[in-house]
Nucleic acid binder design. Structure first.
Lengths: 362, 362
DNA sequence: CTAGCATGCTAAAACGATTTAGCCCGACCC
DNA sequence: GGGTCGGGCTAAATCGTTTTAGCATGCTAG
């Protein structure tokens, strides 16, 4: 019964040997497990138990180093305080940023989470949904993960493509983003602005472009179709690869120059393509921001370390994650209530060295 | 007993109402839960059950959409198939990279993991260790997380600072890293090479520097103390901030130029400081790689998008994560066996545009 | 005829908690 | 003195599995 080897068991050291169970605490006190459980959980039913007994119980628990077994508790209560997170790949910048926010919010509220990266393979994707469900997660957060059929659990989607009944989408406020970027450029005197549009099948492309059109109108800017370039996204499936985006930016930056139409600024679809374009400009002898100003989108880590550092519209990924997690927990806490179809997040303009006053001519 | 509302329950749809339990399958077949369990788990004890019954059981399970409840199973078997991961912050590049590898390996082997980011606060740190243990994780992986006392669970440490009994450290092969970088530079004709040493309290600093000294000797290169600059790490606690590292690189890049000693190449402690130095060089009118070659360390995402793109020694973070996870699972599978105190990972030289032949003079 | 032995299954006890439904005892009321 | 009430606790069921121990039944061997 007593610890086998030589040295005697240290009395007040918490972890001597096997973990202490509820039963042990009860036995140690000469009480029933029920009583100990009631006290430890501060259950309303514990009101019948006199404070002095309660104190005894808590003291014993502390002394013995009792830690309730979460698994057993989960089984009985049918609550796991865990949610599942599905994303393409954890080490991708976007997902990692969002996950950071999810993490902060969840841990703060006493939840944990299980992550599965499906590497954009739709079959893995369903498998993981299964596995997470088997593990009894209480809800789901999908990041950058297209979903077809309805889900069997409460869910929040970040950067989701379609609208699904009952699930909340967390999206960036494109209106605001376009206004921030274009107002900044307009203020610097830019009138002829070039644009990269996103890939045709990317969720954000269309709404962001509409927002740009709207903001341009508001600011009295005209959009020249010759200065509007659609990123191709060819070869398909590569649109998430940074190298690809960079190369595209580079290629299309040259195209822009070859088009012959004068411009003093570029608002790119994302930082990666902006960086590629900057390189193309530099190679052609244009100086940034003296000859051309460049604005990116996302604020990836690399943006701050470019030469010159890149002015960009920051997507507050961390905040988006936080909000997604908070909304999911709200849903879990209030199962009946209607939940909003979308949560809109405000972007932020980060002004760095790639934007400056427009050249005299405009 | 039967589903309440109007429409009749679809017969072969898996999820009509509540989840199906083992007991339900058993009842549906007129067998005992024991039998169903034995068959479903392909337990050796099921050899007494005739194949045709086994088939019936599996068919029924399939038909009813039975999915075993992992929580109950965990409780009974005292196995959770989950490990805990402790790291400073999920959205940090290093940790995210490693975590990606951990994830791949674990999921592939049927494990999940719980992550906690302690934001470098030692108290949070102990709390999370508690919480993870309460949740019955089977083992731990610590990434970039200094640990003082021994752990109560099998553990693997990535980028760990100290050696602890029983825990395996996953470390990069600094010898190899130094050799790769210096041989590359030597081959390009560089003889006078400047160095950034890491911060004094960083785990990698000393061993990497020793490796550099060793490799230099092997290659017949001399190290000029005037060209050796120690990154300060002041203000303390900021050494993980990219901005800080960048600024340091920039400042020390200038210092290097002011030192007046001629050099044709720089081997920086990490990519961030390399990028900062590149900027300082450019500002002083030096061209990279024509006047100075620069080699970084880590291969952060940003390295490929620099102008010029940065030659660097890649730490295969993903691989390190994979190996860490694999080693932990090995430990779990063979509790008795001795485990190696360290696993050494081979770095890889990524040659890009920031290195070129040395100027005539050397 | 009966002990022995497969064969095909099952009862019941775990695992470690929570929770419902009381039990026992003394005090109080009338 | 009996009924009631409340205070302080507990027995036992339960969550959904796994696993140990063993029960019928029928066949074979001696």
């Amino acid at each position: 019964m007593s610890p086998a080897r030589g040295t005697s068991p240290p009395r007040d050291e918490p972890n001597s040997g096997k973990p202490v169970r509820l039963k042990d605490v009860a036995a140690h006190l000469g009480l029933s497990p029920t009583t100990v459980s009631l006290v430890m959980n501060r259950s309303p039913a514990a009101k019948g138990i006199p404070p002095e007994t309660q104190e005894r119980v808590r003291a014993a628990a502390e002394e013995l180093g009792y830690r309730p077994n979460f698994i057993a508790r989960s089984l009985r209560r049918q609550r796991t305080f865990a949610v599942g997170v599905l994303l393409p790949e954890i080490s991708e910048g976007y997902a990692a940023g969002v996950l950071g926010g999810i993490e902060d919010q969840l841990l703060q509220e006493g939840y944990f989470y299980l992550v599965a990266g499906h590497h954009s393979k739709p079959d893995l994707f369903d498998d993981y949904l299964q596995l997470l469900t088997e593990r009894s997660v209480e809800g789901l957060i999908l990041v950058n993960t297209p979903i077809e059929q309805a889900l069997s659990l409460p869910a929040v989607v970040v950067a989701g493509h379609r609208e699904l009944a009952g699930v909340t989408n967390v999206v960036i406020d494109h209106q605001s983003a376009a206004r921030l970027a274009l107002a900044h450029l307009a203020e610097l005197g830019h009138r002829r602005i070039a644009f990269f549009k996103g890939h045709a099948h990317s969720a954000d492309t269309e709404s962001r472009w509409q927002a740009i059109v709207g903001a341009s109108a508001d600011l009295g800017l005209e959009i020249d179709p010759r200065l509007t370039i659609q990123l191709s996204g060819e070869p398909a499936g590569e649109e998430f690869s940074p190298e690809e985006g960079y190369r595209e930016g580079h290629v299309f930056g040259r195209k822009l120059l070859e088009a012959g139409a004068p411009f003093t600024a570029l608002f790119a679809f994302n930082d990666i393509s902006a960086i590629g374009a900057m390189r193309a400009f530099s190679e052609s002898g244009l100086r940034i921001p003296d000859d051309v100003s460049v604005v990116g989108f996302d604020d990836i880590l690399s943006a701050a370390f470019q030469n010159p550092s890149l002015t960009t519209v920051r997507q507050p990924l961390h905040e988006m994650g936080r909000r997604a997690a908070a909304e999911l927990l709200r849903k879990l806490a209030a199962p009946g209530e209607e939940s909003p179809p979308a949560i809109t997040i405000e972007p932020e303009l980060v002004v760095r060295d790639s934007t400056g006053p427009a050249r005299g001519g405009g």
